[in-house]
């Protein structure tokens, strides 16, 4: 049974308050997950931002499991540590204390090369699209494909991914000739084109209109269902909650009170 089905019907109005409620319910279901199916296993993670002479704790002993084929939405107020958690899971930041296992690799003692290898298994959707300005939409997506292999089929695969996000007609356009929403969709195409085992997204629908948001969410759902991929997204967008299997609220560097693993 999918967690989101336990949580709420699609007609629910999603607010932060209701999110917390659903989170609690969702986490009651966590124990049903078969052992070994987790893509993320975090235990007692601490992370401090150090600047000048002081340090600012952002994550305070956070523990969390995320299973295969699960869509998890991270929500909570600004500064609650959502993005930091996302970057730690994405091996974009070095863990300071605690244990974090992602796709079976322990990151607490991982080398730079290990983290690089892991990142190739992960799809990233950045909050600002971070496309390469000199490259066309198709080339931006191909660049991700070339991480795996350089072959003639890459162009077709890139075109397919862009068509999936509704940009089949914009293959040869550069980012500066596209709207922010279109750039975000190219960024999503770049993230999914390698069929990643884990998709990390920071506000993936923030720049999208309703129609595009629906299309992207349906695509994420299909990707998760068809490929067994997991997705973790930081979001404040109520439109995205319906597609979530689980909604995790964070506050002050911890899971919202009452949230078990």
């Amino acid at each position: 049974m999918r967690t989101s089905e336990v949580l709420a019907s699609k007609d629910d109005a999603v607010t932060l308050d209701s999110t917390a409620e659903r989170t609690t319910e969702a986490n009651e279901d966590a124990g049903e997950r078969p052992a070994g199916s987790q893509v993320v296993r975090a235990r007692e993670i601490h992370y401090d931002y150090v600047s000048g002479g002081g340090s600012l704790p952002v994550l305070n002993g956070l523990s969390l499991d995320i299973a295969e084929s699960e869509i998890v939405m991270l929500t909570g107020p600004s500064g609650s540590g959502k993005t930091t958690l996302l970057t730690l899971i994405g091996a974009l930041r070095t863990i300071q204390r605690g244990s974090l296992e992602v796709l079976g690799k322990e990151l607490a003692c991982a080398s730079g090369a290990d983290r690089l290898t892991l990142r190739r298994e992960i799809g990233f959707v950045f909050q600002t699209h971070n496309l390469l300005d000199a490259l066309t939409a198709s080339q931006n997506v191909s660049l991700a494909l070339e991480l795996k292999s350089v072959c003639r089929e890459n162009r077709d695969k890139a075109a397919d991914a862009l068509t999936k996000v509704g940009l089949g007609h914009r293959l040869g356009h550069r980012p500066n000739a596209m709207s922010i929403g279109e750039c975000q969709r190219v960024s999503i195409a770049r993230a999914i084109v390698n069929r990643p085992r884990l998709l990390l997204a920071d506000e993936p629908t923030a720049a999208l209109d309703n129609k595009s948001t629906e299309r992207m969410l349906a695509m994420f759902r299909d990707l998760v269902d068809a490929e067994g991929c997991s997705m973790i997204a930081v979001t404040h967008d109520p439109r995205t909650m319906d597609v979530a299997d689980r909604i995790i609220a964070m506050d002050d560097g911890r899971l919202h009170p009452g949230t078990p693993l």
Binding site: L116, R120, F124, N130, R190
Partner: peptide, 13 residues
């Protein structure tokens, strides 16, 4: 620099 950081984040060495 930001573009190069993106490439690195994607998995390029």
């Amino acid at each position: 620099l930001r573009e190069f950081a993106t490439i690195h984040a994607l998995g390029y060495s």
